[in-house]
Amino acid sequence: MPPKVDLNKCDGCQAQDEPLCEQVCPGNLMTLGENAKAYCRELRDCWDCMSCTKVCPKGAIDTRVPYQLGYHGASLTPMMGTNSVTWTCVDLNGNVERFRVKTRGRYGE
């Protein structure tokens, strides 16, 4: 599941040594390119955990399904809250499905 970085939105985390996506990737795949923006050094090695997509403060990273597995045009976008994450999923027909999922805290609290 290769991550795609929108170069217009990515600011390389303002040229700090390691952008957030590089900090977090469990496979050491995200890194800063020569243009001081993030990119995935080996698309085929991505495990699609979406940690980079979740953490990017500019929302510049989009997770894709490889075309060998699924068709083009669907999207899944996470938005991190303080103790929840909100997902928007859009299928090939443009149907939108939304999910709000608790991530921290006891049920009932």
Partner: peptide, 23 residues
């Protein structure tokens, strides 16, 4: 079905995308 997807979103979110990309 929605609950099922929530389960996947908590563990392997891109599966939900996979389903969406096959309608």
């Amino acid at each position: 079905a929605k609950e099922l997807k929530i389960d996947y979103l908590c563990e392997r979110p891109s599966f939900v995308l996979f389903l969406a990309s096959r309608n």
